[in-house]
Simulated scan of single mutants.
Amino acid sequence: MSDRSQMALRLPPDVAAVMRTDIAQVAEQVIAAVISEVPSYRDPFRGQMGRNIEIAVKTALDGFLDLASRREGIDAGEQIEAVLEAAYALGRGEARSGRTMDALAQAYRVGARVAWREMSTSAVSAGLSAPMLARLAELVFAYIDELSDASVSGHADELATSGRLRQRRLDRLTVRLLDGAPEEELVSAAERADWNPPTRLAALVAPEARIRGARAQLDSRSLYLADEVDELDSGWNVVLVPMPTDRARAAVLRAAADTEAIVGPAVPWTSVRTSYLRALHAYRLSLFGDTDQHLADLVVTAAPDARADLRTRVLAPLDAVRPAAQEKLEQTLRAWLLHQGRRDEVAAALFVHPQTVRYRVGQLRDLYGDRLTDPEFVRDAVIALA
């Protein structure tokens, strides 16, 4: 109702007075009808909240009569604005209570019908003419429409505000999880974000476009990081995906198949940083897919400096031979260890004759002595040369 001056009826003072004396009774009838016909409102009308709503209904009816009669000395516009503010607040309250606008819209329809029935009865008994009665009906329903619109706006604004607030809290929770914050802090952050933790989480590292495309296939409790991650290249991001069961993990792996996505291990949700660090390690090595399938590569590359030192120590005896021979003996030692000394398999791996393998292994025995049969040395050599 953008121009209320055009809608004002200027009800005769005696008619308006009669209708105003019946306001309390009309309000009671409206509330009774809403409670009866809108099940969602049976509980809210109890206790203090119920009394507040009764006052709001009476205020709305008073505001309507102010608009219809434009009483001397009263700025109807200001009073109507106050009523609209109350309707707006009612819509926000509905959103905070977790209810949609459906129940409130139905309540408005029921209220308009009952209010019109009761108020038109009073108006006719006070002698209101038929043309004025028709205009009164028009004003009643236009007024209700405006109240309803105000409530819809309040409901939408509350959802937007609460949605943004919850998303900020989810973002903070995600950052704390990736940082490996203490468990007590994580539990508190999850409660503030109204996030129900799964038993296990896993980190999914993938291109941003792939993440957007996979959202519909992931658990609704998945946590998406709003900002880019410093450790990842531009265009890549991380999602923390609930994986309470092996079946849930298998579903995520299927969704990530044939892509550059990397899936870390499923771990207790408060320990998901370990899953992220493993996925990040695989990302740096371009090991895509299930990190569980790359455990050996991840282990032997976990500490590059330490592995380099181990390699130097393992290959130290080869310093006694010419550089050209060193490379061949190193290749032979690696193949001999991996194929557990089976000469034909070593020869096939190196594309040489078995007698060549026999000759080179003899050289290795001369250089390494008993260490070639020492379990600890064999372990170190396999790790160093893997």
Rank of each mutant, 00 (worst) to 15 (best):
R4W: 09
S5L: 10
M7I: 01
R20C: 01
A32H: 10
V38A: 07
Y41I: 00
D43E: 13
G47R: 00
Q48V: 14
M49S: 07
S69W: 07
E72D: 15
G73N: 03
A76R: 15
E78R: 14
L84A: 03
E85Y: 12
Y88G: 00
R99L: 15
A115D: 05
W116V: 02
W116P: 05
R117F: 05
A130R: 13
D145T: 09
S151Y: 08
A156Q: 11
E158I: 09
R172C: 01
R172H: 09
T174D: 01
L178G: 08
S188I: 03
T199W: 04
L201C: 01
A202Y: 07
L204C: 11
V205P: 05
Y224F: 15
L225R: 15
E228K: 15
E231Q: 13
L232H: 02
S234N: 09
M243W: 04
A257H: 09
A266G: 15
V267D: 05
S271Y: 08
R278F: 03
A282K: 08
L287G: 09
L295T: 13
L295E: 04
D297G: 06
L298M: 05
A302M: 02
L315T: 05
L318T: 11
Q326R: 14
K328S: 03
L329I: 03
D344L: 14
V352H: 02
V357W: 08
R358K: 03
R358C: 00
V361A: 02
D366H: 14
E376T: 15
V378W: 08
A381I: 04
A384V: 00
L385T: 01
